[in-house]
Design a protein around this nucleic acid. Structure first.
Lengths: 338, 338
DNA sequence: ATGAAAGCGCTAACAT
DNA sequence: ATGTTAGCGCTTTCAT
């Protein structure tokens, strides 16, 4: 592999001139030509390791997330990766398959690798752990937390206002006359799950409906959980007339269950799901869903991290949640009010 | 950030002893203890850039693929990433969003980054380009090609036998009495698309059926293409009685079209799709699908690349295709043979 | 088993 | 605008 020295030798110029050229400095037109030719013919490539060693920058960003198999994350990560690349950074993507040990280990790993920044979709990590590993308060390695809030951690976040999204979704059901509404929620140790429940409860409260704990089912955001909990809800003696599923996988599971049990939506039960506009349209009938602003999330995450890596902490900590939308379809029946 | 020098100072040992310890060499028990304590209290981390500069290894693997939004790839990539990580490598994932320019640019980028190996799902790149960029023949940076064959390129591949998969799928339709079978295929510049068509044609031939070019629809493996081509097939004067969709996205599009047009599968048309066992079950009715061995693909890709990076080229070039399966469901009607 | 020293390829003062 | 030089943190001979 050709080095800057070879280019120097070939051109008769000093290595510092070559270095200067490489980094966009001014050189005489004739020398520029000389250097370009030499680089071309020697197939010279900057040795990133050497450069990093000098500059203390790796141009790498670590993206740590629970799983690439969660389509909601895959979409955002793909988008973020593209945006970072346009800015000269490349993404080291690590998924931890929902394992707390791996989550911790891989975050440590990324920091050890001297990435210039981290995007973190946290699942089990606590404020203390994150603080200890990333030294987040010292602003050494910028960290942007994505999608989920970590209790007690003051930092940069790109979040969605899940509470108001679920409040509106639940309200939609109430306005259609539903009084017994089931909730299929995620693990309460994840902030989005708590917020979605809070929104659900808030809507009930605003409409003077008493919440029934038996109607609130807790799962792990998986397809299986969605399936099982949906069945549980419908097997109740006083079954709900409507159900709210609060992520894509659980929505999928619920709809699968409905299909296998030959339950018609919305004739047998009304349903509102979450995420993914593609699939929800091909299900019979199309499902009303909460739509999260994935593109905005990706854009904000990338630009916020780039800003921090530039050293600009002017609006730290950034914590403005994005709004989700409700896409209405025919999965909600009108109930006669008695 | 503490360096090996700091550890040396703290322990009173030379830096070469510290280095030896770090790299698993033998040191006296007492010194070992000393070093461990110093590393702990100084929070010493090996500087990867410095190490790479010396050793000429980055412990990074580049994964280049058309898009992370294609669920078939996302699943495999997630799995491969985990396997590489277990072996001390981390994955730089680059998607090129189906853009030929980006594909080339990002491959060059990865090679420039001095990754230790590359996993490539090629789309537009030619044999010449890949050869030029990666110097694949010199075995400098190992490259494993995944899922798609590049014309004329002798190299390591992890592939699926798409031809026999589609031959069997088509045969399944024929055995149920279908004679006019539509094919929704991908772009012919992608090997999987060509092979799937070849399998389809082969099955027709073996059963003495004349292929009708009008029944072969070419799309770009997208949801939209699946939608449009499905509609086109069903709007034909002599419409097919069965259709084969040849990737997940086109299957999704086709099923969406069927749903929107209120066409019943299999009453109005029989259908076989591709990939994803989750979704195909919740569609009404469940769709018969070709199931590719994604886990095996991930396992083989990772282990093959690791082997090459170890310098073991004993079975080069590796090109043994994996078998796909057919998962039967009620999406195929029996046609009375006249 | 440990230490001294060279050098990987580059950047960034500083001097010219 | 160009050149000289020190040194980033590590590994690796080669001595001891």
């Amino acid at each position: 592999m050709a080095t800057i020295k070879d280019v120097s030798r070939r051109t008769g110029l000093s290595i510092s001139t070559i270095s200067k050229y490489i980094n966009g400095g001014n050189v005489r037109a004739e020398n520029r030509k000389l250097i370009e030719d030499a680089i071309q013919s020697l197939d010279f490539k900057v040795n990133q390791a050497a450069r990093s060693l000098k500059t203390n920058r790796t141009m790498k960003v670590g993206i740590l997330l629970p799983s690439l198999d969660v389509s909601f994350f895959a979409g955002i990560v793909a988008d973020v990766e593209a945006r970072l690349f346009e800015n000269g950074y490349n993404a080291i993507i690590c998924s931890f398959d929902h394992s707390p040990e791996q989550e911790k280990r891989k975050l440590e790993f990324l920091i050890d690798q001297q990435v210039d920044g981290v995007i973190l979709v946290a699942e089990h990590l606590t404020c203390q752990q994150i603080t200890a590993i990333t030294a987040i308060r010292e602003h050494t390695t910028p960290v942007v937390l994505l999608d989920r809030h970590v209790e007690g951690l003051q930092a940069d976040y790109v979040l969605v206002d899940s509470e108001s999204a679920c409040r509106l979704a639940t309200e939609q059901l109430i306005l259609n006359g539903h009084k017994r509404i089931g909730l299929i929620m995620g693990p309460p140790f994840i902030s989005t799950a708590r917020e979605r429940r809070a929104g659900y409860l808030q809507a009930l409260k605003e409409h003077c409906l008493e919440p029934d704990p038996a109607l609130i089912k807790v799962g792990d955001y998986s397809i299986n959980a969605g399936y099982t909990l949906f069945v549980e809800l419908l097997d109740m003696a006083r079954r709900p007339t409507a159900i709210l599923g609060t992520n894509y996988e659980m929505t999928l599971g619920a709809v699968t269950a409905a299909f296998e049990r030959k339950l018609k939506i919305p004739q047998d039960v009304s349903f509102i799901g979450y995420d993914d506009t593609q699939l929800t349209q091909i299900i019979n009938p199309p499902i009303t869903i909460v739509v999260q602003p994935t593109e905005q999330m990706a854009a904000q995450t990338a630009s916020l991290l780039l800003k921090r890596m530039r050293g600009d902490y002017s609006d730290y900590p950034y914590m403005v949640p994005l709004k989700a939308g409700l896409m209405l379809h025919e999965s909600i029946a009108q109930i006669k009010t008695g």
